[in-house]
């Protein structure tokens, strides 16, 4: 049973990074192209565009945190 637990934990830590990464990428694709569109016309929007572009990165940061917690906090308890 312990082994199954380990597999589940490892897989979910992998999944949390991959899925949140994909989600962030998808969101950033749209925001990024919109930001580029806006700032080609108005240079002063450059900074706003850049900041907006990193907003969805929160998702992947949470994903990474969850995965780290799973690997380094939850996993040792199972082993």
């Amino acid at each position: 049973m312990a082994e199954l637990g380990v597999i589940v934990v490892v897989l979910s830590s992998v999944a949390s990074v991959i899925l949140t990464g994909l989600a962030a990428a998808w969101a950033e694709k749209h925001i990024g192209s919109a930001a580029i569109g806006a700032m080609t016309e108005k240079e002063e929007l450059f900074s706003k565009g850049l900041v907006l572009t990193v907003i969805p990165e929160t998702i992947v940061i949470f994903g990474l945190t969850v995965s780290l917690v799973l690997l380094f906090v939850v996993l040792p308890q199972l082993l």
């Binding site: 990165e57 929160t58 940061i61 949470f62 990474l64 945190t65």
Partner: peptide
């Protein structure tokens, strides 16, 4: 929680 990025980006 968003401040976790202080750790994550550095990592």
């Amino acid at each position: 929680l968003s401040y976790v990025r202080l750790m994550a980006i550095g990592l």
